[in-house]
């Protein structure tokens, strides 16, 4: 049994947002447009949060990629009246689009605000419809969120099974991990103690978002070090 997890090394993150673009391309995330984005309707399965620190002129920007934390005790799951979101055996917080009726209760109860709703029918300006990913469903007025690129996990597992072995560490890469030039994102199996993700998750720099809520996220952040 695998237990998928992600490590985000904030020391390495430059805030370049390549992961945001890769995620959008991989997962058919609809484009809201300028006006709708201004109303707070833009979807970012992967988003970069930017915080300013200090007073001018000693200002510093800090970047933090935030996406579904795949909580072990996810607050979004039990509130869904139709089991549209549940916990998979591999530790993923799974969204079943067909079952979703759109109560948006899960999104209210997500302390990380990483659940996005399809306010309208999904749209892409030309020529983007040409590059939609055939492996991923296009969603219609339902809730959606980061899946850890479950389509890539599935394919990786199938290939490994055909070869009669377990998935090798680093073999499966979600789109954001694959794109991250500085290597700030690491994905892997937490149940394999030798995997990079398992070793980094034990780093003294590790923290998890809102750990006090007891949600047990599967995303570990490594905090920035001081080079002062």
């Amino acid at each position: 049994m695998y237990k998928w997890a992600m490590v985000v090394d904030l020391d390495r993150c430059t805030g370049c947002a390549a992961c945001v673009v890769a995620c959008r391309a991989e997962n058919n995330v609809p484009i809201a447009g300028e006006e709708e984005a201004g109303k707070g309707r833009a979807s970012f399965w992967m988003r970069i949060e930017r915080y300013w620190e200090g007073e001018y002129p000693n200002v510093r920007a800090r970047y933090m990629p935030v996406f579904c934390q795949q909580c072990a005790n996810a607050p979004c799951e039990p509130v869904c009246p139709v089991y549209a979101t549940y916990h998979s055996a591999e530790g993923l917080n799974v969204q079943v689009y067909n079952r979703c009726v759109g109560t948006r209760y899960c999104a209210n109860n997500c302390p990380y605000a990483v659940r996005y709703f399809n306010w309208f029918d999904p749209r892409w300006p030309d020529p983007l419809p040409e590059q939609l990913n055939p492996d991923v469903t296009v969603r219609f007025r339902v809730m959606e969120k980061c899946t850890f690129c479950i389509q890539r996990i599935r394919r990786g597992k199938e290939l490994a099974k055909m070869a009669g072995r377990r998935v090798i560490d680093g073999e499966i890469q979600p789109a954001c991990v694959q794109t991250c030039a500085p290597g700030a994102l690491v994905f892997g199996d937490l149940n394999d103690p030798a995997s990079r993700v398992a070793r980094l998750a034990m780093s003294p720099r590790r923290f998890r978002l809102h750990e006090d809520l007891g949600t047990e996220p599967a995303v570990f952040y490594l905090k920035e070090q001081s080079y002062g």
Partner: peptide
């Protein structure tokens, strides 16, 4: 016929 977006809802005010 248009979608729930015709409401003033957004992220984070889903209700």
């Amino acid at each position: 016929s248009t979608g729930i977006g015709v409401f003033g809802l957004n992220r984070p005010v889903y209700w």
